[in-house]
Design a protein around this nucleic acid. Structure first.
Lengths: 199, 199, 199, 199
DNA sequence: AATGAATGAGGATTCATTCAT
DNA sequence: CATGAATGAATCCTCATTCAT
């Protein structure tokens, strides 16, 4: 039942953090293990002390995103209990891409797009992480429905799914355009549509 | 008056076709030049007889998509002159992902997502290709507007942009889920929203 | 006893000329057959119509230098019949390196330095070409001697050999320095020394 | 306080030593990285653990020559404090080429001749290494002059420069002839000339 | 005489991973 | 926990050369 030492944990966390950043910036395959180690200031083979393989750290990165989303401690306000909350959720993503000059899309989606075909585990991980958002949004709509504030025709799960899809596409188009407008425009339309189910 | 030899063109086209398929299936970085050659049944160094570099063939593949879209000869019916035409455009994409068992998203978007950050030319190429769709959809909405069949508040360009974004996101989610539903659901909502501007 | 056609000869000569220039500028190994063909505006496989191999064209280039020197039609005045003639011989070389901004040494010596070790034929060719100069200088000194204008202690062949060695070294140092001074200085000393045998 | 591991240093040094030998024997371009590794008994990709590129090891080899010359520990006695010392300097070079059956010239000059045109850094490195010899010889002549043992007309720097140029040319001609005589003859004349400034 | 497609070995370089200490 | 040396397959690309027309 031995715990990892403090120091070890820190080194490990730094590696994950660096990998996460590089994966987001350049993609997984474009990021070599050596690059991660150099950028994290870690000695050469520390990596294999903490991770079994490159695949392993990819999944570790996805686990990190999962934890952040579940704990709600990331930059995205994912606890949604009002229409304003939903807007915040979308807008936090817009803020996110602004930070990187509209040169990146969703870090999770990018990993999924790159690796889903060749690695079933990663595909499922990606799915699971994105499902957290979908679930949270679903719960928001369910709440509305229960409170009689959503049209009967509206299916919470279906709307949540649409929300995430349009968001992913929004971020993607802004990356291709290196410009905030496509994402802003898409988010605006999506919100307008979603609100049309309000009553 | 002399054209490039038949034979050469065929070999070249076969390489591009193979590259296109592999890029779509596995991604650009995951596809080695050797794989392309082997899969296309081409001798070892024919590649560099026809292409300057791997980047070159990526752009050639994008050029191919561009031509297909401009000529309207691909599987996607991009000439849109009615609401039914718009539905066809979306549905053709759904058919497309079904062909690959929902294991792939948009081939152009995937290339963009993987390479836009590191290669400005590719980013612009991707943008240009996707803009063709956006332009076609824009023209459809403009036509409607001119005919007084679209609400005044509707901005054709903006709606077209939303259309493509939601489509990209739709395909992406279905790839992550290896399931048609997320895409179908997203497309359904998007179309519902767009049609709400009809009058 | 069929002669080569006019046109063929011209193409061939252009290839040799281009090769000569590129070998001088960048070295033999640094020059690819393709580069020669592209720079000479020759179709891809013309090369192997005229030459058996890359080695073959190297030797052709050396043969060219040989002919130029034997015919005395090059930029180097190699017919030496006076001290002034010897000075001209040296100075023509200094002019030569000036033309190329002191970025090149002797084209023949360079080929020799690069290939003598691996190709005995080339080594002998190089030697033969340089021997032409040595021979001409030798004859000059022999003439002087016969005319009683050279000290008895002076050995014509030996002095000629020294002349060429110091010249080769002179050009080399100027290339390393990208500056005319080392060559000018060396030539000045060499000439001073040689003239000391005059009587 | 930690030094690079013994083992690593040894491997690295062995690679440099092997590269040095092969560059001298066959030239830089004629020597592949694989050849260096095989000849040095080093595993396939150790090379890039120690050197960034092939250019890097070329410069490392030049750095090696520089250190050897500065430390005076090589086969060439470069500390010159008498006419005999100058003769030793020349003769050590003659001994050097004898070791290799007169199939090689100056290793530094050869690298310079092959790469100076395409690589400015290498050109400067080569220049710097050869300047060490020139500087040492210059100091010898300056010493003579200060002691009143050199004619006033003699310029130390200029004579040193001539010394090295004639030496380079001497070695070159012997390589082309695969024979010691041209070098011996040239050195003999150069020394005779230089001594003529003694008083 | 000329063209350009085809070949396949070999070049430099990068990569994920393992080993010895 | 940590270090960096070692491994060898794989990657992109270039080369000299030959073939088919």
């Amino acid at each position: 039942m031995q715990e990892l030492s403090e120091k070890g944990n820190i080194t490990r966390a730094r590696i994950v953090e660096t990998a996460r950043e590089l994966f987001h910036k350049n993609g997984v395959r474009a990021t070599s293990v050596d690059q991660i180690l150099e950028a994290s200031g870690t000695g050469k083979s520390q990596f294999y002390h903490y991770f079994r393989s490159k695949e392993d750290i990819v999944r570790e990165v996805l686990r990190f995103y999962k934890e952040v989303m579940l704990s709600g401690q990331g930059p995205i306000r994912i606890e949604i209990d009002s229409w304003e909350g939903l807007e915040n959720f979308f807008n936090d993503h817009l803020k996110g891409i602004r930070m990187f000059n509209y040169e990146r899309a969703c870090p999770i989606g990018s990993i999924g797009n790159e690796l889903a075909a060749e690695n079933e585990d990663v595909r499922q991980d990606v799915n699971a992480v994105l499902d957290i958002s979908i679930q949270k949004i679903t719960e928001f709509f369910e709440g509305l429905k229960k409170a009689g504030k959503l049209k009967k025709s509206a299916d919470p799960k279906s709307l949540a799914n649409f929300s995430l899809a349009s968001l992913q596409g929004a971020l993607l188009l802004s990356k291709f355009n290196k410009d905030p407008k496509p994402a802003e425009n898409t988010v605006k339309h999506a919100l307008t549509y979603l609100k049309s189910f309000s009553k």
